[in-house]
Simulated assay, not measured.
Amino acid sequence: MRIWCKDHPIQFMACYLVFYLAFFTLLEHSIVVPDLVLHCALDDMIPFCKYAIIPYYLWFAWIPCTLFYLLWFNDRREFWRLCLPLFAGMTLSLLFCAIVPNGVNLRPAHLYGNDIFTQAVRNLWKTDTSTNVFPSIHVFNSVTLALAYHRCARLRARKWLWVKLAADLLCGSIILSTLLLKQHSVIDATAGIVLALFLDTVADAVARRTAPSVAYQHDHHPVFQNT
């Protein structure tokens, strides 16, 4: 199985996508009333903003774009280095939601207007319920992707600093969008960040053990040597 995944990375991603969508859809339809409703005082201080739908939707494009970029233009080990924490974290998040059904109750009672942003938010709320939010997969994935850009050997040169800064900006805007759209609480957004940092550390330890040809700089970032 491991050899097949290594030789067929695109098929592997497709299989995981099918698994994730099936699992997520099952949770969305089976969990109507969550056992745990997340809320904190900070949630009430954050205003609703319909324009946050823009970075929120950019998340859906950012994931495949980053994965294919690492797969086609970089050492393939960097692709698998991202897949490990990314897919593990998404799976763990779904498992936690299955074991502890959770959700939020933060959305405003009414959305006024028929502009494109308001309609986009309405469409989002129709397809994505207020359940299965802890930890936030949107936040988890965004932080994990941003870390991958900082780790990428191809982007080490100073001239590519803008790419890493853009990734950080997109990551931050997506995290804020989950709060501004009342999709997530500060609690599950924070949990997404913590999970991303933890699994990135675990993936780094795995990379050290399984790739003896990898040389590490003093900052502990892997530099992939040509073989």
Score class of each variant (00 low, 15 high):
157 A>F: 09
195 L>N: 00
53 I>W: 02
61 A>K: 07
19 F>Y: 13
195 L>A: 07
99 I>Q: 04
23 F>N: 03
76 R>Q: 14
65 C>I: 14
46 I>E: 05
24 F>C: 01
56 Y>F: 15
137 I>N: 04
57 Y>V: 15
187 I>Q: 06
118 T>S: 14
17 L>D: 07
208 R>T: 02
84 L>Q: 08
162 W>H: 07
106 L>Q: 02
173 S>I: 06
122 R>L: 15
134 F>N: 02
61 A>N: 12
174 I>Y: 00
109 A>S: 15
21 L>K: 13
74 N>E: 12
97 C>Y: 09
114 N>T: 14
54 I>M: 11
27 L>D: 05
134 F>A: 03
200 D>C: 05
44 D>V: 12
95 L>S: 05
225 Q>S: 07
77 R>E: 14
222 P>W: 02
180 L>S: 01
212 P>W: 03
164 K>N: 13
56 Y>C: 11
119 Q>E: 15
188 D>W: 02
160 W>A: 10
43 D>Y: 14
92 L>H: 08
166 A>D: 05
161 L>M: 09
128 D>R: 09
5 C>F: 14
88 A>M: 06
114 N>L: 09
120 A>V: 11
227 T>W: 04
39 H>P: 04
187 I>D: 00
17 L>I: 12
49 C>W: 13
199 L>Q: 00
104 V>E: 05
95 L>E: 06
169 L>V: 14
169 L>C: 14
19 F>I: 10
190 T>E: 00
214 V>G: 03
210 T>S: 06
192 G>S: 05
170 L>R: 04
21 L>G: 08
201 T>L: 05
224 F>P: 00
38 L>W: 13
